[in-house]
């Protein structure tokens, strides 16, 4: 499926969607966050992109981008989808009703980039320790040399 066809089949149903060419994939679909579940249902059932590859997020300081990769066994192709949410209120509907494998991906995106997925069944920290307060992949989170760290010595 080429970009034009993807665009033709999607834009008819979802006028707000923009399809851009993206190298070595069927295209890159930019969509507003409101139509997330409908769009992904259409992608899965209508277009046959039934395998969720990844969910990731990028912090663009003012807003945050969430991107998804879908794979279709029929087309033998990936499609890349992305949406943007404002950094002041990084809320997005959870994809788990459509793709149950999005569970861990979204947990990871939440704890690393701070996207809050609404109606996620189990939004616990996955990788960072319990009680970790930061979203490390935000641009505001700076790495530093460990000399600046204060290590508390524990009495044994």
């Amino acid at each position: 499926m080429e970009g034009e066809e993807l665009s033709r089949r999607l834009v008819g149903k979802f006028p707000a969607v923009v399809v851009e060419p993206f190298r070595e994939t069927a295209g890159r679909v930019r969509f507003p966050p409101e139509i997330l579940l409908d769009l992904f249902r259409e992608m899965r059932d209508g277009l046959g992109f039934d395998h969720l590859g990844q969910v990731g997020a990028i912090d663009w300081v003012e807003e945050r981008e969430v991107f998804y990769t879908l794979w279709s066994d029929r087309e033998k192709q990936y499609v890349f989808l992305s949406t943007r949410v404002p950094a002041s209120a990084p809320h997005l509907e959870s994809l788990t009703p459509v793709f149950s494998s999005a569970n861990w991906h979204e947990r990871e995106a939440w704890e690393l980039v701070g996207i809050e997925f609404d109606h996620h069944p189990d939004l616990r920290p996955l990788l960072t320790p319990t009680g970790y307060e930061f979203h490390p992949l935000l641009r505001s989170f700076q790495l530093h040399e460990p000399e600046g760290l204060e290590v508390k010595v524990r009495d044994v």
Binding site: P129, F141, E145
Partner: peptide, 16 residues
């Protein structure tokens, strides 16, 4: 700490 010395989640040396 090795190559991950600067990472936020890594203990920089187990002798800590």
């Amino acid at each position: 700490g090795g190559p991950f010395r600067t990472a936020y989640s890594v203990v920089p040396g187990v002798d800590k």
